[in-house]
Every structure is written in C-alpha cells, then in structure tokens.
Design a protein around this nucleic acid. Sequence first.
DNA 1: CTATTTGCAAACGCTTTGCCTGATT
DNA 2: AATCAGGCAAAGCGTTTGCAAATAG
Lengths: 129, 129
Amino acid sequence: MGRRTQRYSKQREAVFNAVKSTDSHPSAEDVYESVRREIPNISLGTVYRNLSRLADSGKISTLELPDEVTRYDGNTSDHLHGICQECGRVVDVELSVHQNLHDYLSGISNFHVSRYSLTLHGLCRDCLN
Amino acid sequence: MGRRTQRYSKQREAVFNAVKSTDSHPSAEDVYESVRREIPNISLGTVYRNLSRLADSGKISTLELPDEVTRYDGNTSDHLHGICQECGRVVDVELSVHQNLHDYLSGISNFHVSRYSLTLHGLCRDCLN
DNA sequence: CTATTTGCAAACGCTTTGCCTGATT
DNA sequence: AATCAGGCAAAGCGTTTGCAAATAG
C-alpha cells in the first residue's frame, strides 16, 4: 500500500488542465481529444492512467452517473449533477437542497445511510426555453 | 418501430421467474446461473435478450446503480435501493422519504427536474450489528 | 542511476449482434 | 408455412494492463 511518489509529466499536467478548464464534465475520450491538440502523440491509456491518479489524489473527481460513460469533474466540491434529456449535457446543480438531504435520509429505518449518489434528469436552463 | 409480437418461450418464462422470485436484484450472470439449473444449455445471450425484452415491456425493471454491473428487479414499483458497503448486497429501502423528495427537488433553480436517480450507500440491517 | 511514466497493443469484463437452426403460432 | 426465439461465437465498447523504451529526479 502507500502511494508511490509522483513525478511530474507534461501529459499529466495537460490532462489535469483539460479537466480543470471546463465545466462540461468530460469523459476520458473527450479529455483525449482535447489534450491531443497540445500533445498529438499522447495515448489514450496515458489519459486513463492520469485521470485515475488525479482522482485518487483528490485533484479531480469522478462522476457517478448511472448508465453513462465515466466523466470527470475539475470541481471537487460536493455538488449535484443534472443530465439534460434534451441536449445530453451534464450540468452542475445549485444545491441548497443537497445540504438538507442527508438529514432527510436518516429517517430511513432499514438502512444506515453513510452517503448517497443523486443524479437528476430533466431540462437544463437552455433547453427549458 | 412498433413492437413485434412476442411468442412464448420456456427460456423467457424461466428468466422472468428467476428475477421475480428473489429480492436480491440479480445481475444477468446471476440469472444465468440460476436458470441454468433448470435449462442447462440456455445461453447467456438469450438471458440478456430476455432481460431486455422483459424490461422493455415493463415486466421487470433495470437498476440504475452507479459503477455497478446492471442488475434487475422483479419489483417494478417505484422504490429506492441501498448498496451495503459491508456485504455488497443491494437492498430495497423503505421510502417514505422518496415520496416527498420530488417536491423537495423542485426548489432547484437552474435545472428542471423530471425524475431523479438516487442510490444510497451505507450499511444494511444485518451488517449494522 | 533508479524509479516512474509513456506509447503501444493486447486483454478485459460486460453486453450486444449476426447467423443459422429450432420452436411457436 | 411464416416468423419469432434460441444457441453459439464473434464483435463491440469503455477501460485496464504488460512491456520495453523514454524521462524525471
């Protein structure tokens, strides 16, 4: 066990920047496409490896979306996501709701909730018009 | 388009029964193992095909669990699921909470919620002891 | 100099599909 | 007899991994 030391690599930096610089919650493939413009011969395997390491070390986070390709988020704060049924985008959701939900869920009698995963489906602001 | 007519087959009946007769939320592989005791030469492809058809026609339902193999549920009523961090089981969760949640979620300002997918993580009753 | 990281390609796990034979209506 | 469903095996898709060469410290 124990994490081994991490060395700098321009590939990891580029992967990190690609995730950090957008709020589109890119998939590994999306990140690959984006980073390739800067480092044309980067391999998809390297992108996957770096996404995992960055997520392990808490610098980015992984999105738990049902029936979806894994997506990554540069915003590591605790928040919710909505998937727009119209345009397919994954958007950040304002979370006053989120804050009370944990208490709300402790009302459950046959299961002890330590965390939950909530994904909303509906219409984003753009598609609501 | 348009659904084609469905014919009876003993394989589909067995797949249906396997899902209906348990509350363990079996995966396709689980169903395969189970049905094989009755129909030893059934193929895994047939199990998948029938699970899809049964779900399409609403006779069983598909579980949207993040980062999990797809599981199936013979209980088609709207309810929540908890994944036990100790034993890995997926259990049905009593849902008084669930009923109010939709209203609760309409408070969100930047996303119009039409449905949501909520999975709980924690401890089931057995593992809480 | 040594350990880590890369690129590449092969392997993986789960699920779907094509093709031809067999079963249902 | 006309379709639909099954068995089998191959393919598909997203992701992981083994390996030898390159690179950071």
